[in-house]
Design a protein around this nucleic acid. Structure first.
Length: 278
DNA sequence: GACCAGGTATTGC
DNA sequence: GCAATACATGGT
């Protein structure tokens, strides 16, 4: 089906480090495995061709692309007087926060720690091929917690994930066991939801915040990685040591979305940050 | 061959 | 509490 969508650019999302399984298929086209399905999307001048019918689109992908949220209003709220924020929003004008599967986000960002994005992509794909269900498209579904938990240490070693392999095993155990379900994590106070996720070995503050933001749509979560720390030190030096708790006071209820614009811009323009903080 | 990559757990003060 | 350190793997 075809749809005209404002404030959406697939490349901005693909490059923004929130998802790791999108596969570029030439100009402005991506193949996206998620929810055990494979969607192909082509973008031409704000018009999007989705390789699915209206039923599947409304059931799965409308929420995935966060299409019921007015990003124009959010951008206006996020970029007040500060020139850097204005530039970040203008540069990543088509950014959106995907509503991804919670379990997939937990695993992906455990894998992401102290790793670069190309290697994260490779690792996640190897994991899917190792124990995920084969799809008709020839790709693999993201493995369930049960499938991951069933893997032996030797099998996980083939991923070449290093010390993170043990973290993945623990994440599966915790999700199958004591961890509250998605509905609970979505409604818990931020600090409590964060603490619950951090009971997983290998999930610290940053991975917990990524999980809350990308896996539960909690825009009050504000992931602080090395790049965001640099950007915040440059933009709000007086907030040093108070982040991420003070983020909502600065950016309002869309702190996590602001983070996404800033992170993307920051990664693509490293010189603007280094000049000021080196 | 250092050095870095969307960090975290552990240790020592 | 908070800084220093090790941690595996692969790409510049």
């Amino acid at each position: 089906m075809q749809l005209s969508i404002p404030d959406l650019d697939l490349r901005h999302i693909y490059e923004s480090g929130q998802c790791f399984r999108w596969e570029p298929l030439g100009q402005d086209t991506y193949r996206i495995p998620a929810f055990g399905r494979t969607l192909t999307v082509r973008q031409t001048d704000g018009v999007f061709d989705f390789s699915c019918g209206a039923g599947e689109f409304d059931a799965l992908w409308r929420s995935y692309f966060d299409l019921d949220t007015d990003y124009a209003a959010i951008k206006a709220r996020v970029a007040p007087r500060d020139a850097y924020l204005q530039a970040a929003v203008a540069y990543g004008w088509g950014m959106r926060i995907l509503r991804q599967d919670l379990w997939e986000v937990i695993v992906s960002f455990i894998v992401s720690q102290n790793n670069n994005i190309p290697r994260i992509r490779g690792l996640v794909e190897r994991l899917c091929a190792l124990c995920g269900r084969p799809l008709e498209s020839g790709q693999y579904a993201f493995p369930t917690p049960e499938q991951l938990a069933a893997c032996t240490e030797e099998q996980l070693a083939t991923l070449r994930a290093g010390w993170r392999a043990a973290y993945l095993a623990d994440a599966a155990q915790k999700v199958l066991g004591p961890l509250p379900g998605p509905e609970t994590l979505a409604t818990l106070p931020l600090a409590d939801a964060r603490a619950a996720l951090m009971t997983i070995h290998g999930v610290g503050p940053k991975v917990a915040d990524c999980t809350l933001l990308y896996g539960l749509g909690r825009w009050d979560a504000f992931p602080l990685d090395v790049w965001m720390k640099r950007a915040m030190a440059r933009l709000f030096p007086e907030e040093t040591g108070k982040m991420p708790e003070s983020a909502p006071a600065i950016f309002g209820p869309y702190a996590g979305i602001a983070q996404q614009y800033i992170f993307h811009y920051c990664r693509c323009h490293p010189e603007e940050i280094r000049e000021k903080t080196a």
